[in-house]
């Protein structure tokens, strides 16, 4: 797992992907940060909320190649025939993408640091907000990794994860419109509703477990997907 993890992290930073994403992220979050300065608002949780929108299109770019590329280039043969468990292959790849995300999170810490330095409050709400943001990002990435496992075409992987994340993001809204069982199922995948607690500073064990199980579920079906393809291909 470690070998795959290190290789994937390296390959993110050897290619322009990581830098483009980090750059894009900084530009957008800086724009979101302008109102904090002009209106002298010390509250950063609003920013975290808008930052999570960025993830909807940033994560698909981050994860689109992670499994699809191996399949396209035939390097999946190497991984699958090496003495490494399938779960560890998926986990190694997942954590590599997660690491790039964490780099982004760490960079974004500069905003609250600036706020606190100029009189803002270091609050539990902020810590909760960040924790929620990290869990949310982790959940997004698991969806992206899964999308990358269903195709060898990176563009399709990106589109599928983008649409998937979008649907999960607005699941509550849709559920409200339809109602019934469909609404209930949609509710299970509503990432946003669990996130609200965090941004309000409520640190419940429930949402944490929810996100962790969500991630496990998607990584599990990713492994299943790869396993299924082993059975069907020549």
């Amino acid at each position: 797992m470690l070998a795959i993890y290190l290789k994937e992290v390296k390959s993110y930073f050897y290619s322009p992907i990581a830098y483009v994403m980090i750059g894009l992220f900084i530009v957008l979050t800086s724009i979101f940060f302008v109102p904090n300065l002009t209106y002298r608002s010390g509250d950063f949780n609003g920013n975290l909320s808008s930052m999570s929108y960025i993830l909807i299109f940033l994560v698909p770019i981050l994860t689109m190649r992670i499994i699809a590329e191996d399949r396209k280039n035939g390097t999946d043969v190497l991984l699958i025939t090496s003495p490494v468990k399938l779960t560890n292959i998926v986990l190694g790849k997942y954590f590599a993408a997660f690491t790039v995300f964490m780099v982004i999170v760490v960079i974004s810490l500069i905003y609250p640091v600036v706020l606190i330095a100029f009189g803002g409050q270091f609050t539990a709400k902020l810590v909760g907000g960040y924790l929620g943001y990290i869990l949310l990002g982790g959940a997004f990435i698991s969806v992206g990794v899964f999308a990358s496992s269903i195709t060898e075409n990176q563009i399709i992987a990106a589109i599928v994860s983008f649409v998937g994340l979008l649907i999960m993001w607005i699941a509550d809204g849709i559920a409200g419109l339809i109602g019934g069982l469909t609404a209930k199922v949609l509710g299970w995948f509503s990432l946003l509703s669990r996130y609200e607690d965090f941004s309000n500073g409520i640190l419940g064990i429930g949402p944490i477990i929810y996100y962790l199980s969500f991630i496990s579920l998607f990584l599990f079906i990713t492994a299943m997907m790869i396993e299924k393809r082993r059975w069907s291909q020549g």
């Binding site: 070998a3 280039n73 043969v77 090496s82």
Partner: peptide, 30 residues
């Protein structure tokens, strides 16, 4: 898998790695 070295029809190489990096990676993998 521990006991087999497999060279598939299309060499399973990563285009964006150097030969040394690649073999190091495979060594870790194995």
């Amino acid at each position: 898998k521990k006991r087999i070295g497999y060279m598939p029809e299309h060499p399973p190489v990563y285009m964006d790695m150097t030969v040394t990096d690649y073999l190091n990676f495979v060594g870790d993998l194995k």
